[in-house]
Write a protein that binds this DNA or RNA. Structure first.
Length: 672
DNA sequence: GTTAGGG
DNA sequence: CCCTAAC
C-alpha cells in the first residue's frame, strides 16, 4: 500500500574519484588490546585494499594519522610522537587535494584518547570520497528536507553529490530521470575539484570496472636502485609515478619530477605524462587482483599481493599478518612492494620492455625468467559495476542513500571474481603468463588493460544471466537477515546521519539525536521489499554484477561489525538520568526514553554502557580511558546502581518470600 | 523482541 | 561491541 510508484535508479557505476595513496595509521593505542576487527570489513576499507593499495601502514608511536591522496597529503592529525596519548587534544586536519594549495580547508577536533583506529577509519572514509551522500535538487543546493518525494522544485532530485571530506571535494551523480526515465545515476565529475583535473577522471560509461593505469615506467638498465632511494626518501608512494620515474632515470626524484608527473597525471590520467619518457612500459598492477574472488576478509590481509610477487621476493614474510598485535596488516607493506619489485627487477629491462617478446613465444619462459620480468600494475581507480536500484518513490532520501550504500557495499562485500580485459577482449586463460597474453607487452595502450568484477557465486551468475524483469525485483535474491541488515543499517546511518563537522569523532549525542533522519524515515517498510538489485542495462553486458542489496546467501560472508562509537559525556548524562529514573532492568525503556532517536544505540548498547560505567566509576581515575566522564556523573552511576541493585534484590527476596510463605513482607524491612 | 551476562 | 541463553 505504501508503494504506488517506484523509481528506478540505474546506478551506472561508482568510481573512486581519486585514489588516495595511503592512510597511515597510528598504532599506539591507549588500550593494549587492539583487535583487527576494529577496522575490518568496512566495504570501503576493502575497496581501498583491493583497488589501489590505498592503505599503507606505518608503525608509529604517534596517534597521528596521515591521510593522503595520490599525491598530496589530505589529512593529518597533529601532535608529536612522544606526546602522551591520553588527554591531549589533536586536530584532524583536512587539507586540500590540490598540491599547490597548502591551506587547511577543514579540521575537526580529535581527542587523542579516542581510538586511533577511528581516526583511521574516518580518514579513510574521507579519502575514499564517500563520507556522505547529499542530494541536490539543482546545482549545489542541498535538499534540506531529506525527502525524496517532495523537494522544493517539486520533482525528484536531479543529482546526488557524493561528498568526500567536507569542503574537500565532491562528486556529482546526475539523476537523468528526464531523458532516460530510468534515472540513470551518472557520475559526472568532481564538482569542487580543480578544473585541470578534467572530466575524464569521472566519466564512466563502459563496463570495464577497474581502470588500470601504469604504475611505473621501467627503463632498460634501471634496477634495484629504487629500494635504496626509498629508504632515504621516507614514505614512498606506490602511486607515485613521478618518484619512480625519477629514480629510474637516475635523477633526484623527490622534487622535480614528482611535481611534474603529478600534475600531468592529474591532468590526464589516460595519457602518459609529458615528462616521462617513452621508455615506459605500461603495466597495470594486478597484484591486488590476482584472487579477488576470495573472501574480502582475506583481502584485508593481502596475501594475494604477496603471492603474486613472492616468488622472487625474499621479503615476503613481512607481508604476513603477524597476529592481533599487528593492528595494521599493511605495515611497511608499501615499502616492500617497491623493494620486492625493484630487487627482483634487476633484470627488469628484459623481455618485456624491449618488445621482443611476443605471445607466440609460448613456453619459452621458464618460471625463473618470468619472475625476473616483473610487471608493475596499478589500479588507478575502482569502479563498482553497474547496478540497478529499485526503490519506492515515497522513500526518503535517507533510505535512498542507504540503498545506494548498501548496493555498493553488497558489490564490494560479495564474492567477486576478477576478469582481465585486454583491448576489449576478455582474457580467459588463467594459465597463460602475462607475456604470453600480451599484457606485458610494451606496445599496449595504457587503457588496453582492464579488470572487471563479476559475480562469483552460482547464484549471482544465475541471476546475472537473466534479463531484467519485474519478477526479479522481488525475487529470491533478497535474503534479509535481521542481524545483518540491522547491522549494516546502523553502520550506514552512522556514516550518513552524522553531520560533518567538529563532533564527528567525538560527541555524537546531540548529533545523533538531532540527526536529520526521523524515525519514520527508517527504510524498514519502504525498502524491505525493494532492495533487490539487478543489472540495469538491457544490453548484452557481460560483466554486470547482480547483487541483492542485503544478500547474504553464503555463510562465507562475514557480518559487518559495527563501528565503534564511544559514548560522549552528553550521552552518558542522558543514560544516567534515564537509569536513575527507570532502573537497570528496563533497557528498552531507557532506550526509548533517552536514546530514541539515536539509531545506533540499541538497548543492549545502553546496557553495556551502563555496565562499563559502573566499572569505570569503581576504578581509579588513572585507570580510566577514553573521554573523561565527570566524577559527578560517575557518582550518580554508583548511587543509581546501588539503589536499583537493592531494589532488584528486594524484589527477588520478596518473590521468594511470597513463593515460600505466601505472606507479605513489608518492603521497608529490606531497606537499609 | 527483551533481558542478563559472559566474551 | 558481540554473542546468546533464557525468557
Amino acid at each position: 500500500m505504501v508503494l504506488n510508484r517506484r523509481l528506478e535508479y540505474g546506478f551506472n557505476g561508482y568510481q573512486v574519484p581519486t585514489m588516495p595513496r595511503a592512510a597511515r595509521s597510528a598504532r599506539k593505542r591507549c588500550s593494549p588490546k587492539k583487535k583487527v576487527e576494529d577496522y575490518s570489513m568496512c566495504a570501503f576499507d576493502l575497496l581501498a585494499t583491493v583497488a589501489g593499495k590505498l592503505l599503507g601502514g606505518k608503525d608509529t608511536s604517534s596517534p597521528s594519522i596521515n591521510l593522503s591522496t595520490k599525491h598530496d597529503q589530505v589529512a593529518t592529525t597533529g601532535g608529536n610522537s612522544n606526546e602522551e596519548c591520553r588527554g591531549s587534544q589533536k586536530q584532524l586536519e583536512l587539507q586540500p587535494y590540490d598540491q599547490e594549495a597548502s591551506e587547511i580547508v577543514g579540521s575537526k577536533p580529535v581527542t587523542s584518547n579516542d581510538d586511533p583506529g577511528d581516526y583511521f577509519k574516518e580518514a579513510k572514509r574521507a579519502a575514499m570520497g564517500f563520507t556522505d551522500i547529499k542530494v541536490s535538487s539543482d546545482g549545489p543546493a542541498v535538499v534540506a528536507s531529506d525527502k525524496l518525494e517532495k523537494n522544493e522544485i517539486g520533482h525528484f532530485p536531479e543529482s546526488i553529490a557524493v561528498d568526500s571530506c567536507p569542503n574537500l571535494k565532491s562528486s556529482n551523480y546526475k539523476l537523468d530521470n528526464e531523458i532516460n526515465r530510468k534515472n540513470v545515476v551518472e557520475l559526472l565529475e568532481c564538482s569542487n575539484a580543480p578544473q585541470d583535473n578534467g572530466p575524464g577522471i569521472y566519466s564512466l560509461k563502459d563496463q570495464v570496472v577497474w581502470d588500470a593505469k601504469p604504475l611505473v615506467q621501467i627503463s632498460p638498465g634501471s634496477n634495484a636502485k629504487m629500494s635504496l632511494d626509498e629508504e632515504k626518501s621516507g614514505p614512498c608512494d606506490i602511486f607515485s609515478q613521478g618518484k619512480d620515474n625519477a629514480v629510474l632515470d637516475g635523477k633526484d626524484g623527490d622534487k622535480n619530477s614528482s611535481g611534474c608527473t603529478h600534475r600531468s597525471n592529474l591532468k590526464n590520467p589516460s595519457s602518459p605524462a609529458p615528462c616521462m619518457g617513452d621508455r615506459r612500459i605500461r603495466k597495470v598492477l594486478a597484484s591486488t587482483c590476482q584472487k579477488v574472488s576470495t573472501k574480502w576478509k582475506e583481502k584485508l590481509f593481502p596475501r594475494h599481493d604477496v603471492d603474486l610477487e613472492s616468488d622472487n621476493c625474499d621479503k615476503k614474510s613481512f607481508y604476513k599478518f603477524q597476529g592481533s598485535q599487528q593492528i595494521f596488516p599493511f605495515k611497511k607493506r608499501k615499502f616492500f612492494d617497491l623493494n620486492c619489485q625493484s630487487n627482483s627487477g634487476a633484470d627488469i629491462d628484459g623481455d618485456c620492455s624491449d618488445g621482443r617478446e611476443t605471445p607466440s613465444m609460448v613456453g619459452q619462459h621458464s618460471p625463473y625468467q618470468a619472475a625476473n620480468s616483473n610487471v608493475k600494475f596499478r589500479i588507478e581507480s575502482f569502479r563498482v559495476p553497474e547496478l540497478f536500484i529499485e526503490i519506492s518513490e515515497t522513500a526518503t532520501v535517507g533510505s535512498l542513500k542507504r540503498t545506494v550504500m548498501e548496493a555498493v557495499s553488497a558489490i564490494l562485500g560479495g564474492e567477486l571474481r576478477v576478469g582481465v580485459v585486454l583491448e576489449g577482449k576478455k582474457v580467459g586463460d588463467d594459465s597463460k603468463t602475462l607475456v604470453q597474453t600480451g599484457i606485458c607487452h610494451g606496445n599496449n595502450q595504457v587503457d588496453a588493460l582492464g579488470f572487471t568484477l563479476e559475480p562469483n557465486s552460482s547464484q549471482d551468475v544465475h541471476f546475472a544471466t537473466r534479463r531484467v524483469g519485474p519478477s526479479v525485483f522481488h525475487g529470491s535474491t533478497c535474503h534479509p537477515r535481521s542481524r545483518y541488515s540491522h547491522s549494516r543499517t546502523e553502520l550506514y546511518e552512522g556514516i550518513f546521519d552524522e553531520p560533518k563537522g567538529a563532533n564527528n569523532l567525538g560527541n555524537a549525542a546531540e548529533s545523533d539525536r538531532g540527526s536529520a533522519t526521523s524515525p519514520t524515515d527508517l527504510p524498514t517498510k519502504v525498502t524491505s521489499d525493494s532492495k533487490a538489485l539487478v543489472p540495469f542495462s538491457a544490453g548484452n553486458r557481460k560483466n554486470l554484477v547482480l547483487v541483492p542489496v542485503r544478500r547474504k546467501s553464503k555463510h562465507s560472508e562475514i557480518a559487518q561489525r559495527r563501528i565503534r562509537r564511544p559514548f560522549s559525556v552528553a550521552e552518558v548524562e542522558a543514560l544516567v538520568q534515564a537509569v536513575e529514573k527507570l532502573g537497570t532492568g528496563r533497557w528498552r525503556d531507557v532506550k526509548l526514553r533517552a536514546f530514541d532517536s539515536a539509531k545506533h544505540r540499541t538497548y543492549v548498547d545502553l546496557k553495556d554502557k551502563w555496565k562499563t560505567l559502573v566499572h569505570t566509576a569503581r576504578i581509579s581515575p588513572q585507570q580510566r580511558r577514553g573521554e573523561p566522564v565527570p566524577q559527578e556523573l560517575l557518582d550518580r552511576v554508583l548511587t543509581a546502581h546501588a539503589y536499583w541493585s537493592q531494589q532488584q534484590a528486594k524484589q527477588q527476596l520478596k518473590h521468594q518470600y511470597h513463593g515460600h510463605h505466601h505472606h507479605h513482607q513489608p518492603e521497608t524491612r529490606l531497606l537499609l
